[in-house]
Amino acid sequence: MSEYQYYEFQALDRPLSPEEQAQLRAISTRARITATRFTNTYEWGDLKGDPRRMTERYFDAHLYVTNWGTHRLMLRLPEQTLSLPTAQPFCLGPHLDAWTTRTHILLDLTSEDEDGDWVEGADDSLAALIGVRDELATGDLRPLYLAWLSALTAWEREDDDEDEYRTRLEPPVPAGLGDLTAPQRALADFLRVDTDLLAIAAQASPAPPKKPGARPAKKELVPLIAALPQEEKDALLLRLALGAESGLHTELLHRLRGTTAPPQTAPGHRSAAQLLDAAHTLRTDRRRHAETERAAARARHLTVLADQAESVWQQIETHLATRRPSAHDQAVTLLADLRDACADTKRHTSFHQRLTRLREANRHRPGLIQRLDRRDLR
Results as ranks from 00 to 15, higher is better:
P263C: 02
F38S: 07
L198W: 04
L12G: 02
T36D: 15
I130K: 07
A272M: 05
I27D: 11
E310T: 13
Q330W: 08
T103Q: 15
S271R: 04
T103Y: 11
D113G: 05
L191E: 03
T281E: 15
R371M: 11
A226E: 10
R157H: 15
Q203P: 00
L276K: 08
R354C: 06
R37H: 14
P143I: 03
D163E: 15
L197I: 09
T356K: 13
G93N: 08
A299I: 03
A87P: 02
D124S: 10
H249I: 11
S28Q: 06
E120V: 12
H104M: 01
W44K: 09
I316V: 15
D60S: 11
A309R: 15
H104S: 11
T41D: 12
I225R: 04
R354E: 14
G131A: 03
G131C: 03
R52K: 14
T260E: 12
E156C: 08
W155G: 06
W313M: 01
T356Q: 12
L84W: 01
A331Q: 08
S83I: 01
V304E: 12
A122Y: 04
Q80I: 04
P78C: 10
L338K: 05
E170I: 01
S350T: 14
P89K: 00
H269A: 10
T110M: 13
T86K: 00
H301K: 14
R359T: 06
D340W: 11
A127F: 00
P325G: 09
E3P: 00
R298C: 00
L320E: 08
K218E: 14
A272C: 10
F351Q: 13
A217N: 09
D160L: 10
A207F: 00
G268P: 06
A31I: 08
